[in-house]
Amino acid sequence: MPNLKTLLLFVAIFSIFNFFMSCSNPKETKTQSLVPMTQMPTIVSFIKSGQLASDNSNFYIANSVAESYYTMSDTLRFYIQAMADSLDGDFTKYVYICPCDSTLILFRDTTAFYASLIWPGRPRPRRVFRENIIVGNDGNDCTPDASTLVAEFQTLLSSGNSSNNGNSLIVGVLSSGFDPSNASSILINNTESSNLNNNVDDDGNGLADDIYGYNFANSIMNGNNLINQDENSFDLQGEGSGINQIILNNSTNLKLLPIKIYD
């Protein structure tokens, strides 16, 4: 049986060893204070289709996850948000989707913006700048630019009437409301009572009197329902009416859904 003196000596040596070990690895201590190390593998594991790569501890790249950000689960979003929250809460600084190939990049800290990146199977980006500019080794700027957006716009246009399906196209206009003289072009909610201001949610969607769109600018909670304070989504200042007129110009088979968000 070890005596008490031997036991105390053993504890003291163990404590000193631990102290020196923690001092010799300050980076790990710092990292843990920024992002829980145990969380990152969890985050990454949610990117099921991704081929993961990391060349240092600062970032991860998930490869071949086009569109996955847009369809990711709430759980993954929660984890990514939690990661951002553990830093400075700015979600967009730590998640970036390369417009070139939709590669999803998760940054663990801001220094990664200046780090060289390993880009599995793709041109290797040289540097990543704070202003959301990515430049590949070939000198090409991967930052989304107008030409990218115009090309996207063209793709959208050339997709034809797939979203029309022979019915009226519905355009939600978030503005100051609509002019009643345009009522024939407004999407009418027939499941709601025609009594415009009875403050009753007839169709049970949580919004009372949403016959001609809805007025979120002047609505209050009444139990579980939102009710309008004034005449539905009528435009009182003209801006929304003007926007509606422009959209309706020469258009057919179109219904507007007024969503009043300001007066």
Partner: peptide, 15 residues
């Protein structure tokens, strides 16, 4: 408003 627009079938939003 966007949630509402989605529930009413809006394909395009003008904001």
């Amino acid at each position: 408003g966007i949630r509402y627009a989605a529930s009413r079938g809006a394909k395009i939003l003008c904001m």
